[in-house]
Design a protein around this nucleic acid. Structure first.
Lengths: 160, 160
DNA sequence: TTGACTGCAAACGATTTGCAATTGC
DNA sequence: GCAATTGCAAATCGTTTGCAGTCAA
């Protein structure tokens, strides 16, 4: 009876969001819920600023900093994802042969790799309809072996 | 006899760089050549700032702005490529099912697409060695049909 | 010679930070 | 009540721009 009932998919998602926060030791604040809800209902991959503008209509007091901070926190817990950027700073390379990138989320180093078999598969038809394709790149995120080792060494001494 | 001789692969690339500049009506300045050469010899995907620091050792007077401006110019002519960023501003989405992104280089809109077949292919062995993989995303750059149409309409009137 | 390019300095926009007040647990 | 979180304002950082002098063609 007093178990909250999900009225639709969004409510279900909010419920599980709240649960994940609790389990992770994150405080469930009004702001966090609204930020998550707004992002969940937005399908245009908004920027922090756009999100803030939308939220401000319902919550006039919410600050842009909170949106930034919350997105960063939720990203850490895998509840939100940031779309392909190698940090905020652009990285360059001289144009050579087609290749893809491995980006380490710890040290931000970028490595190249080749995956020629990919070229042999056609993109889904929906993509062709979207517009005129210029390039397709795979971006693989992970932690490079260097950082994996570093992490282990440091963990023993200072808890990082 | 007075045809310049390429002494190694890099010289060859510089030569063809110069040629492309000439053909494109770009002036071949000392700075442009050195920026291109440095980038060509760098294999760590440097940022504009890092590139500038390296260049400053040989060309103490080169300014950071020139590096930025030159990279932007060379990018336009396809001589340099900028690594996956959706502009400088981060975009977010609530985490759902794995999917990929279409980014329009005109309007910066981001669309999603699914390509489940990709999941069935293993990444090359070299990638597995690199470290621990968290996610793999395809980023397709192009021009969405919206902008393609807009472009056509505007071209007729103001040449854009 | 001339327009394209550069260097300088100042502006800009996105994001982060220190701090005091507030709030969830 | 206490630690985590917020809002505010100021700082920071990468990048861009206006302008006057310089240089490739």
């Amino acid at each position: 009876m007093n178990v909250p009932v999900a009225h639709n998919d969004n409510d279900t998602l909010i419920n599980s969001f709240v649960q994940v926060c609790r389990e992770s030791g994150l405080k469930v604040t009004h702001q966090r819920i609204e930020i998550y809800r707004e992002l969940m209902e937005s399908h245009d991959h908004p920027s922090a600023e756009l999100l803030h503008k939308r939220l401000a209509e319902k919550m006039p007091t919410i600050s842009l900093d909170t949106v930034y901070r919350t997105l960063a926190t939720l990203e850490q817990y895998g509840l939100v994802s940031r779309i392909q950027t190698a940090g905020s700073l652009a990285r360059f390379e001289a144009v050579t042969t087609p290749h893809h990138h491995l980006i380490c989320s710890k040290c931000n180093n970028i490595a190249d790799f080749h995956w020629p078999i990919l070229e042999t598969f056609e993109l889904p038809a929906s993509v062709e309809q979207w517009g005129q394709i210029k390039s397709k790149n795979i971006v693989v995120y992970g932690i490079c072996s260097n950082c994996l080792h570093k992490k282990r060494q440091v963990q023993a001494s200072c808890g990082l």
